[in-house]
Nucleic acid binder design. Structure first.
Length: 233
DNA sequence: AACCAGGACGTGA
DNA sequence: TCACGTCATGGT
């Protein structure tokens, strides 16, 4: 077992299945989770089931850019009340209603536009699964957003890298600070079997762990246990 | 009361 | 390419 696999094992043992990606209709709360948000469905890998759920994950991936999930959940609930977690119906919302609904996530002018651009693309898919290149061409969809959509909405085993991933594994010494997104992504994909569940859980576990122990400050000594799994390997 | 959150884009060097 | 400013609300 390589180091990347060992870290996964450690995290999963600590926190258990995370039940990502949250869906507003799922009231189940993961009691082990940081924060007071619901929508998680630990152990259920069948989701998303409907087209609208696939869509919900995609727009959630856009809304969460540089923003915590607590805020995104509010925006999604607002959209839900407008019956607009559906591509056709979201497109029919006025700009005013759309921006007002997503206000909690901030950057609402930019994100409203991103949502419309993406929604046009989504409708053109017509049940087809997009590839990474197609997603990256969309204005407003960068590497992390594209990978999140692929992994959690379209169930393609592609690894998601975020600021937390970079922070943890930089401090661990696995990657250097100037590593670019695809370098980090490759590190994980080269050291893991392309297993959808593992990819989904690993990213979610990294987020959970980072929220607890890896603030933006320099202190990485809060989690000695995690550090120690390196030694002796 | 600063500081930062599950990024991406536009700009100038 | 690359570093830096911008987008904006809400929770510690």
């Amino acid at each position: 077992m390589n180091k990347i696999q060992e870290k996964y094992k450690w995290l999963h043992n600590q926190y258990g299945p995370q039940g990502w990606w949250p869906l507003v209709d799922y009231q189940g709360t993961n009691p082990t989770k940081t924060g007071n948000v619901h929508g998680y469905h630990p152990g259920n890998y069948e989701l998303p089931k409907t087209r609208d759920q696939v869509y919900e994950i995609c727009i959630g991936a856009i809304l969460t850019q540089s923003v915590g999930w607590v805020s995104v959940e509010k925006a999604l609930i607002n959209l839900k009340k407008l019956n607009a977690i559906n591509p056709e119906r979201l497109m029919k919302l006025s700009d005013e209603k759309l921006k007002n609904a997503i206000k909690p996530v901030g950057y609402f002018n930019v994100k409203a536009r991103k949502l419309r651009v993406f929604t046009g693309f989504f409708m053109s898919l017509n049940t087809k699964i997009p590839n990474r290149e197609e997603l990256l061409k969309i204005w407003g969809v960068g590497p992390e957003t594209a990978d999140s959509m692929l992994l959690y909405a379209f169930k393609v085993p592609t690894f998601v890298v975020d600021a937390y991933t970079r922070r943890i594994f930089t401090r661990l010494g696995y990657i250097n600070e100037k590593a670019i997104y695809d370098d980090i992504k490759t590190l994980f994909e080269n050291n893991l079997k392309p297993d959808l569940k593992v990819y989904q859980e690993y990213h979610a576990l990294i987020v959970e762990h980072a929220k607890r122990f890896y603030g933006k400050g320099k202190d990485n000594r809060k989690c000695l246990l995690f550090q120690e799994t390196i030694k002796g390997t």
